[in-house]
Amino acid sequence: MKILLTFIGNHDPFVGKEKEKGPILSILEKRKFDKLYLLFNNDKYWNALFEMEKYCNRNFPQMKVEFREAKSLNPIDYNLVYPAMYQTVKRILKENQNAHYTISLTSGTPTMHACWMFLVQGKVINAKLIQISKETGISEVTFRLDDFPAIQQADEIKVELTKLSRENEQLKKSINLENSLKNGFYIPDEGINIDKEIIPAYYKGALNKTNGNAAKAAKLLGLKPHTFRKRLKALNLNLKKFGVK
């Protein structure tokens, strides 16, 4: 099985008013894959994700499209981006044993591009790295050992703990944590939409904590499984795209 991994970027699926094909679609027109994993780090990309899926289903019906969340509080902070990507990649590898992977470095932030290289060079994933441009088309990104030495990979538990620790520090800097704990949840000056921001976050958090096990996620939230799934549907959270069991 041939699999393409890529973040969805601001130029996907199309660029400009003329709807010129973005990097991901340009790659798919030149190379065939059995499955496409679209990673995202912010909920603002949902429209682009669904538009990409719709286009792919129509034009590349043989290819399966999956969405995977790799969120971090700051998309340009290596300390947060790498652990988030590491966990997502490990789950994808578990789902697709003996697959052949290709990773696009074109979409996403420069920090994400670098982290893809760290993951490959650190032997977390065996994959080809590619990039695409109008001038040169698709080209493979390669490194000789003396140019880019091997990276020793930390174990999975350490990576997860590091991520949680660093995100906690980020939160402490962004809000007055002590005051929030004393007086209730922190509410920003501009207010917050509970239905669109808080409630979906709890559902996503429960799914992430249980690795997509809907029954266990429902239990964490004190809900019956059928009620949990019904509310997920009402929130437009696609179970299949999160690998929900």
Rank of each mutant, 00 (worst) to 15 (best):
L145A: 12
A114W: 05
R58P: 00
M85Q: 10
K2N: 14
N57Q: 02
E197I: 12
K173D: 00
K134G: 02
G191E: 10
L39G: 06
S133R: 06
S133M: 02
L5T: 06
F143W: 06
H11Q: 15
A127C: 02
K21H: 11
A150K: 14
Q87S: 09
N208M: 10
L25P: 06
M117N: 09
G108D: 07
N213H: 10
I151N: 07
E29T: 15
R31G: 04
C115A: 15
N47Y: 13
F67Y: 01
E140S: 05
E160F: 11
L223N: 07
H113R: 15
R31H: 13
K172Q: 07
D147G: 09
N193L: 01
E156C: 06
L36A: 00
F143V: 05
L235H: 04
I151V: 14
R31C: 00
L161S: 02
A127P: 09
M1Q: 04
P13M: 00
S180H: 06
K182A: 11
I27T: 02
Y186M: 11
M112I: 14
E66S: 08
Q87E: 00
L105T: 15
Y45R: 00
A214T: 15
D155V: 06
K173N: 11
T227I: 10
L181I: 12
K219W: 00
E178N: 13
I125D: 06
K123Q: 13
L239P: 03
K204G: 00
F7N: 14
L235M: 02
A150T: 10
F228S: 08
H226A: 08
Q87N: 08
P13D: 06
K219L: 13
N79K: 07
Y78K: 15
L80I: 02
F60H: 09
A127S: 01
G108T: 07
L223Y: 01
L119Q: 00
N59Q: 10
K240G: 13
F50Q: 12
I198T: 02
R58I: 05
F143L: 10
I192M: 08
K128D: 15
Q153T: 12
V124Q: 14
H100S: 13
Y78N: 05
L5V: 01
A218Q: 04
L232P: 06
F7E: 00
I125G: 06
N193F: 08
N47A: 14
R229F: 02
L181D: 01
L232C: 08
I175Y: 12
N98I: 04
P61W: 02
V65K: 04
I130A: 05
G184L: 00
V15S: 01
P83E: 04
F14G: 10
L49S: 00
K245G: 09
G122A: 12
K209L: 13
Y82V: 07
T6P: 13
N183A: 07
K173H: 14
Y101K: 05
S107E: 08
K64G: 09
G9D: 09
L161W: 11
I187S: 05
F118H: 05
V120L: 11
E169H: 01
K240H: 06
N74P: 03
P225W: 05
K216L: 11
G222A: 05
T88V: 13
K64D: 00
